[in-house]
Amino acid sequence: MAEVKSLSPGKQIWIRLKANRAAVTSMGLIGLLILMVLFAPWLSPFNGEDIDYEAIAAEPSLTSGHLFGTDSLGRDLFVRTMEGSRISLAIGLVATLVSLIIGINYGAIAGYFGGRVDAVMMRIVDILYAMPFMFFVILLMVFFGRNIFLIFFAIGAINWLDIARIVRGQTLAIKQQSYVEAARIYGASHWHIIQRHIVPNLLGIVVVYITLTIPQVILVESFLSFLGLGIQEPMTSLGALVSEGANEMESYSWTLIFPAVFLSIILFCFNFIGDGLRDALDPKQVK
């Protein structure tokens, strides 16, 4: 008999995901983009801080080496867009990770223990939900000064609420499964049950949520930067660049167009990946 290769649930999802052309293209694009934002600034003769006095607010051109042109201060827009994308992606990833770690643990504990523990924990989430986000961020900025880590923290601290709710709901369903009961029968501790049986089975939904949270976080950061509360000069992010570009779009349209295109591509790609994953993870879909 021929050896049949075993397909783990993960592999099956991967096969289904690969069949989704938009998701695969998006993954390729995001990969390319990550390589670009990491290495492309080195290939350019310019850096993001120095002013080119010969090319202030210059149009994009291949001959001058300013591929995306320069801004009204004469800084190379190609390098600044790359640096901005790097910061935006980093915020997206780190803030999502922070919210995941808090959200999964919080939600799984609330859902697993249920009853009074659950009620108290979820009411805390409700109260935090009711806090106005902008107000919270402005207060943080005023008290602690503008700091990139604070932005990571602030965004992560808001986003874990959603994850905690989703994870709690899933946990409520999973803990009714007979395999959780089986684990209780052969004497697994609560910690083991959460770690071995509940969290691994949550991963599907969490993966989808990650890909949908990253663009959301990037957008929130852009919004903050647009309002002048986010990243500070000389560092930049896509939101800050779009904000600057928007002020000058009538005279120097390229300062808006390039960062805006990058922002859109990133958001589109993550959303497509998220959609693809959601379809791939849907158990009702025929193999």
């Binding site: 007979s178 395999y179 089986a182 029968i185 691994p200």
Partner: peptide, 19 residues
């Protein structure tokens, strides 16, 4: 925990799909 074991009605549901 050790000396009493249980066999479930739905065999598939009693097995963690990720193991």
């Amino acid at each position: 925990n050790k000396d009493i074991q249980f066999i479930f009605q739905d065999p598939l549901a009693a097995l963690n799909p990720r193991m």
